[in-house]
Amino acid sequence: MRIAVITFPGSNCDHDCYRALKLTDGVTPEFRWHRDTDLGGVDAVLLPGGFSYGDYLRAGAIARLSPIMEAVVDFARDGGPVVGICNGFQVLCESGLLPGALLRNESLRFQSYPVHIRVETTSTPFTSHYRKGQVLRIPIAHGEGNYHAPPEVLAELEGDDRIVFRYSTGDGSLAPEANPNGSAHHIAGIVNEARNVLGMMPHPERAVEELLGSTDGRGLFQSLVHHLSAGATP
């Protein structure tokens, strides 16, 4: 199956995403440029991390007006699987595909190190290869990853099982010191109501080879392939 990686000016994880997809059995990755207007019939879309448009105005605010984003929004509204990682998550929030916003880290520092995240739900196209409660070791690298949403939205995310990953300790408990950016409810990743759009701050594409120190990110890409090849309605 074919999965598109979107490159915006300032994206810097697009090649990492491409490689992670290439290492996943059954996937042919393809790049799409921000000026493209057509996804070209791909089966899924990945919005990579980086600093699209220099993070000007707000992270993701300008990228969401790119020509390609119109196609991505249509694709997502039709049920196509879309994953936004780090800056990609910010773009998804700005484009209205996911609720909430990502604020400056509480510490005011750019945080770049491996963290632990707990898998909160396996009923998404992106997490079926994990176990509920499984703790993954995956790197973060962001200055604005502090997830914020109004209380009623947080309640909805909780109630509808839409929180996909939470920052935790290595043994899976939600200690405040395991929250690297001050995110509400320890949120590291969420899905939309239809469950086909995932946004997450940690970088699974940086955890797909032993050499990188962890292979815990592989399951996400394998889950997606499984979902697509099972012919499940996206």
Binding site: R58, A61, L65, A101, L103, H148
Partner: peptide, 8 residues
């Protein structure tokens, strides 16, 4: 549409 994020 752009200049402010209504959430924050």
């Amino acid at each position: 549409k752009l200049l402010a994020n209504p959430v924050t």
